[in-house]
């Protein structure tokens, strides 16, 4: 309980600056302009909580620090077919219902362990014909998960501090010892 509160407060402090524009937004709407999907402020928060569960803040930045939930929304809005966007919206409603049914709580009210458990229960169902988890719910989760990780691994932070991206390698060594590569 204590840990969760700390995380929450930390996120509020660190994310405060980034969230400022939200104060001026139309009440109840998402904080970024979207053309093709309608996302409410509550839904944006849900996606933010999910993204933070997927890529949590540890001793390195997490999803909210990197605004990955906004990247998820941006990609949803711009890079998916209409059918996938509709499935996302239906799946999101189903997700909220499923959380309520399972925990009698909102996703925001769950512990980190419960949040992880909830997400993993969807992710682990790989059977496309499964009836316990609908296709819409899988689409919703798949987009949130996939774009959170995509946004993370393609973020400036990740590509400069974790797995370094070289814009200008200036070399091609065709025979390179794997051991030496691991040592880098």
């Amino acid at each position: 309980m204590h840990r969760r509160t700390v995380i929450k407060n930390l996120a509020l402090i660190i994310g405060g600056a980034a969230l400022l524009p939200a104060c001026m937004q139309e009440k109840g709407k998402a904080s970024i302009a979207l053309k093709n999907v309608e996302i409410s402020a509550d839904q944006e928060k849900l996606i933010g909580d999910m993204a933070e569960t997927i890529i949590p803040k540890t001793n390195t930045p997490g999803a909210k620090d990197l605004n990955l939930h906004l990247f998820v929304l941006k990609m949803l809005d711009d890079c998916y077919k209409k059918a996938d966007q509709q499935a996302f919206i239906s799946g999101m409603a189903q997700f909220t219902d499923a959380v309520k049914k399972k925990y009698d709580n909102s996703f925001a009210g769950l512990s980190v362990k419960q949040r992880e458990e909830m997400l993993l229960s969807i992710e682990k169902d790989k059977d496309p014909k499964s009836i316990s988890i609908s296709a819409e719910l899988k689409t919703f989760y798949g987009i949130v998960k996939g774009q959170t990780v995509n946004g993370y691994t393609n973020s400036r932070y990740f590509m400069t501090k974790r797995v370094i991206y070289e814009l200008v390698p200036g070399r091609y060594n065709a025979h390179f010892p794997y051991k030496q590569k691991q040592a880098v």
């Binding site: 997927i54 949590p56 540890t58 992710e123 998960k145 990740f158 691991q182």
Partner: peptide, 15 residues
């Protein structure tokens, strides 16, 4: 990319 949380973060940088 399987899983969620800190174990996923670890996997994403693992050789």
């Amino acid at each position: 990319w399987d899983g969620v949380g800190s174990s996923l973060k670890d996997n994403l940088v693992k050789d």
